[in-house]
Amino acid sequence: MISTVWLFKDALYGALVIALACSVLGVYVVLRRIVFVGAALAEISSAGIALALWLSGRGLGGELTHHPVVFALLFGLAGALFFSVGQATRAGVPPDATIGVTYAVAAAAGILLIAKATVGEAHDIFLQGNILGITRTDTFVLLGIAIPVLLAHLFFYKEFLFVSFDRETARTLGFHVATWNAFLYFTLGLVIAFAMQFAGVMLVFNFLVLPAVTGLLLARSMGAIFAIAIGSAIVSAIVGFTLSVPFDLPSGPAIIAASGVLASIAWLARRGLRRA
C-alpha cells in the first residue's frame, strides 16, 4: 500500500501544503464566524476559472485565458476585498445574506460557463479539484503562496487577533481596522484562489473549517488552537490520502471524512472532559 501511495507523493506534499495554509487561516474564519465567506470565495475563484475556460473556448481574452489561475486569483481577491469592505460598512443587507447571494450566484455562474465552455476535457475536475493531479511544480507554486502568507500571519498575529477579537477597541488604540481586515481577507483570497484549483471547493472549505473546529473544541489558548488545527489538518490529509489510493476512493472526500472523524473525536473528548 505504501509503495502505491509513494507513487503519488508529490500530490500528497501538495495536499499537505494546502492543509497547512488553510488550517491556519481557518482559525480566523471559524472564530470570526465567517465560515461561509471561505465557501463563497472558493466558488468565486472557481467562477473565475470557468470564465477563463469559456473565454478560451471562444478564442476571446487572448493569452491570459490560458492561465485560469490568473482569473481565479483576480476573482478571489476581488471577492476578498468585497467581503472585507462589507464587514466594515454593513450596507442594508445582513452580512450572512450577502455571503449567501454571492455563493449562489458564483456557483451558478461557474456551472453555466463550464456548460458552454468548449476547451479542456475535465472541466468539472478542475472545479471539483483533483488532488492526485498535483505535480512537484504545483507543490512549489503552492509553497510560494503559502510561505509568505504564513509568515505574514506569524509576524502580524497580534494585529490580526486584535481586529478579529475586538475591532472597536483596536480602532481607539489607533489600529487601522479596515486595512488589517482587508489584509486578512487578502491572504484568505490568495490561498483559496490557488488551493481550490487543485483541491476543489469542497476540500478547501473542509480545510478552512473542520481543523479549526477540532482545535476550538480542544484548545484553551490561541497557540493550542493553531497547533491542533494544523495537526488535525495534516493527519486527516495523510490518512485520507493514504486510504484513498489503494481503495480507489476519491481523495478529496476521503480526506474530508478523515477530518470529520477527528472533529467527532474532539467533540466526544470535549464532552468527556466536561463531564469529568
Binding site: L161, F165, A170, L173, R220, S221
Partner: peptide, 22 residues
C-alpha cells in the same frame, strides 16, 4: 461586544491594551 468564543486567557486580553505601545 467582545467575542468570548476566542480561547484567550485574561492576561492575553489585558495585554491587548498595550498592543499599540508594543
Amino acid at each position: 461586544s467582545v467575542d468570548y468564543n476566542f480561547p484567550l486567557k485574561v492576561t492575553d486580553v489585558v495585554m491587548m491594551g498595550r498592543y499599540d505601545r508594543i
